[in-house]
Design a protein around this nucleic acid. Structure first.
Lengths: 194, 194
DNA sequence: ACCTGAACACCGTTCAAGT
DNA sequence: ACCTGAACACCGTTCAAGT
């Protein structure tokens, strides 16, 4: 497959950090994380692999960090209703969206779980904590609860992707996810003084 | 570093599947998953990398499956007390052990989350379901609850490894883990007819 | 500034060969 | 049966060179 460098270079959009990360996500979603290589990514962008390093100086590490940020940064909408009393509805909405996002990009789940990109989940966690605080939970309980929620959603998504069902027949994962979420919400409500 | 093949071959223990996986786990725990290569693993076992394939015909895939099984297979002790009423204590004990195991071998967490080795978590999930069933929960609630527990523990362990704390000062992860677990247990108790 | 081409030090895996 | 050595088709990344 031969490309004419000078001519083709005019016809394609300029290489940007964003275009690179989107193309990488497309490869991961379609072929799996194991097939994401700098050379293949270059092919997808109609560019030599080495051109990528000009936009992501830290190379593949920075690329993977970008994928995690693109998928895992998704704060809960605090003021969607404006009423703190709707905290359960807000959390249900966020959890459903977050789960869908993780399942849609299941290939990056192992990266979300790894140490990379420590700041990626921070904004999400902070938004959950704030919702619980506004709902009336003490500071400490709100912080603990935010992690319980995020941990549950990520962990359950991981089990879903694996199709881990311990010899059960057909499993309604959506219903199972919701049932587990309600367990956590029930526990949180029991801590709520209001 | 030169070895005398015939002599050294006599002095070292025979290569077995188990010895290979234990050596691999040592590398992952000490240096990280990224540094686990067949060649380095061979070095650690004082053997050429290619010798490993004789014991693990599916190669590195089989090696990683073995690591997951070694870490993630840890069923809850159902009959530790013999009394179903102690279901909460049994689950607390299991969760604490499982968390410790995952944190001890944090390098394999991304593998646990990946699709590999679908049977690895089955026995663990089944034991949790059985405890909840014996505690008096309906079949469906027991199955959902087992996944909620496993999902929470795995997800929270992943957050702990990342040290994900959204700009908080010092975090007592052990206490936070326990607090989140109690949320789930409270939710489960609310479903219990007894 | 942005991209290329060649090169380097690694990978996992095969395969024929040794004992 | 168990292990080795050489070889193959890949990797990520560097670096000097082009435009």
């Amino acid at each position: 497959m031969v490309r004419q460098p000078s001519v083709a270079a005019q016809n394609r959009p300029p290489l940007t950090r964003e275009r690179i990360i989107e193309a990488a996500l497309r490869i991961v979603d379609g072929q799996g994380l194991g097939r994401l290589t700098m050379r293949r990514l270059g092919d997808a962008l109609e560019v030599e692999a080495m051109a990528i390093y000009h936009h992501l100086p830290r190379g593949k590490e920075e690329l993977l960090d970008g994928l995690v940020a693109h998928v895992a940064v998704h704060p809960a909408q605090i003021g969607r209703t404006g009423r703190a009393a709707d905290w359960r509805a807000a959390l249900r909405g966020w959890a459903g969206d977050y789960r869908a996002r993780l399942l849609e990009h299941a290939g990056v789940l192992p990266l979300v779980v790894t140490r990379r990109n420590p700041a990626a989940l921070a904004s999400t966690t902070a938004s959950l904590r704030e919702i619980l605080r506004l709902a009336g939970l003490p500071e400490r309980a709100a912080a603990d609860g935010a992690h319980a929620l995020l941990g549950y959603v990520i962990g359950h998504a991981a089990l879903e992707v694996r199709g881990e069902a311990a010899g059960e027949e057909a499993v309604d994962w959506q219903a199972r996810f919701t049932a587990g979420l309600e367990l956590v919400l029930t526990g949180l409500a029991a801590q709520n003084p209001r």
